[in-house]
Design a protein around this nucleic acid. Sequence first.
DNA 1: TCAATATGTTAGTGATTACTCACTTACTTA
DNA 2: TAAGTAAGTGAGTAATCACTAACATATTGA
Lengths: 205, 205
Amino acid sequence: MSRMRKPAEERQAEIIETALQLLTHTPVEKLSTALVAKEVGITQAAIFRHFPTKDALWQAVLEDIERRAVNLWNDAVAKGTSPLERLAELIAAQLGLIAAYPAIPTLIFNAGQISAEDTLRPIHRRIMSGLRHRLLVEIREAAQTGQIPPAPSTEDCADLFLGLVQGTVLRWKLSDRSFDLIREGRRIATIQIGLLRGHKAGDDK
Amino acid sequence: MSRMRKPAEERQAEIIETALQLLTHTPVEKLSTALVAKEVGITQAAIFRHFPTKDALWQAVLEDIERRAVNLWNDAVAKGTSPLERLAELIAAQLGLIAAYPAIPTLIFNAGQISAEDTLRPIHRRIMSGLRHRLLVEIREAAQTGQIPPAPSTEDCADLFLGLVQGTVLRWKLSDRSFDLIREGRRIATIQIGLLRGHKAGDDK
DNA sequence: TCAATATGTTAGTGATTACTCACTTACTTA
DNA sequence: TAAGTAAGTGAGTAATCACTAACATATTGA
């Protein structure tokens, strides 16, 4: 048996990816270092060669999610040609990420819950406020170019769309992922955008 | 020291309440029977006099949440005089429950994650679909009485409002509960209701 | 009043946890 | 090619976990 030994960087990425994959079907509290090690194909002790503590592993996992999210957001913004299109693409991108790694919303909703509050919470906040900011940028541009009325503030609109993402994901999880998350997200986002645009005839009391 | 001994029913309620309270600041994975017992003021072994397994305790906690939620929904529906008022009251009621027990959304979002999937998931689903149904009833009545146009389907509207709740809670948690959850929920719900009503002049392409 | 019962404690169980340490072997480079 | 280092192993550790058994005492009802 050739004991393939991998460079640290590669092995660390492998451990992180494996942890994320395992979290799809394993509850957070059951994700032990032993389980991750077994799945990777190394001994449990080897995990600690690459991460000083388990919390450090959690931190790396969260930072990995952040990296993936930011990349997808950039792609989404580049894809859309109008602000409202980009808005829809951003939502679809986020849902795509969650569809690929269903553990993400759980990790995010648990926020500081996974013991390492102080290191993990800021990452959570960065991810969520990062997405919110991207949405906000597009909504502002749509408002400035008159594609949507200035009726609800752009901030409130961003929050409504963030909620739309959250709500769709929750329904998806409770339904045992029985529908296409991205498709449903696009559909309901379109409806919400329609509501915004339909608000044109202002009853600005 | 008079070792006050309480009837089982009362003690069970005390254990459940304590667990819920502890979950406000304790991650799910760290909520041990020992911690709950210490907080209640009994020994760890005494917990198992009242709950055969820890999973049974989780189940009781979830069922308690369900009971509280249903009661609050009933009150909310009785309070509002118009369907859209009742809609807002329902949302405020749910947010009030979450403000009192911030662990609830985490428990719900974790869904099957807390090991006892088979017993816990149905309860989660009942709570969420219960709220959705209540919202749906009010939205339907509002649509039938012409207070909102039939533009988006009532089902989609219910999902949008559910998302609104989820999103507001998430922002609240990530902001370290720095704003008044109920007030903010009412505010943004009012905005969304406004969007719905403003959709009257149908641009049914 | 006194025995039955319900509610509790004390002191354990084995399993699992994150983590350590001494040692080994694969890979790299001088 | 020899030596240094990076990556991994095997065998532990103490702590904590849910849970149990034997025993104790408060409460209650006949």
